[in-house]
């Protein structure tokens, strides 16, 4: 394994550890409510009531998580497409230059 690959692997592992270790250490004690909803809860505790409703709200949490997944998939798809094209372009250039990639 080259040094470059090793660094990449370590970076990916670090990101994974950052988000799985809290889950494992916690052992199911926390609910992991979103900070956004905790903030609205804190505001409603002061007696404030929202004065405008969302024009469209997903009808269930399943639909909502599906839409979030759609957003991530769109972003991931575009990102993967761009990075794949850039890599293909570099490989083609390297081949033109007669260098091993």
């Amino acid at each position: 394994m080259t040094r470059r690959r090793l660094v990449t692997a370590l970076l990916v592992l670090a990101v994974l550890a950052l988000f799985t270790v809290p889950l494992l250490l916690d052992g199911g004690a926390s609910e992991y409510a979103g900070t956004d909803s905790r903030a609205t809860g804190a505001i409603e505790d002061t007696g404030y009531r929202p004065w405008f409703e969302s024009v469209f709200a997903p009808s269930s949490t399943e639909v909502e998580s599906g839409l979030f997944a759609l957003q991530a998939a769109l972003g991931g798809g575009v990102l993967g497409y761009v990075l794949g094209r850039l890599r293909g372009r570099r490989l083609a250039r390297d081949a033109d230059a007669g260098q091993a990639p």
């Binding site: 889950l23 004690a29 926390s30 979030f68 957003q71 991530a72 798809g77 575009v78 761009v82």
Partner: peptide, 22 residues
């Protein structure tokens, strides 16, 4: 496009944190 896609993906993903919130 990659810059827009990066913020599109990351802002869609809710992750757990050490504080017990996500």
């Amino acid at each position: 496009g990659a810059a827009g896609a990066f913020t599109f993906v990351l802002s869609a993903i809710k992750l757990p944190s050490i504080t017990g919130s996500s």
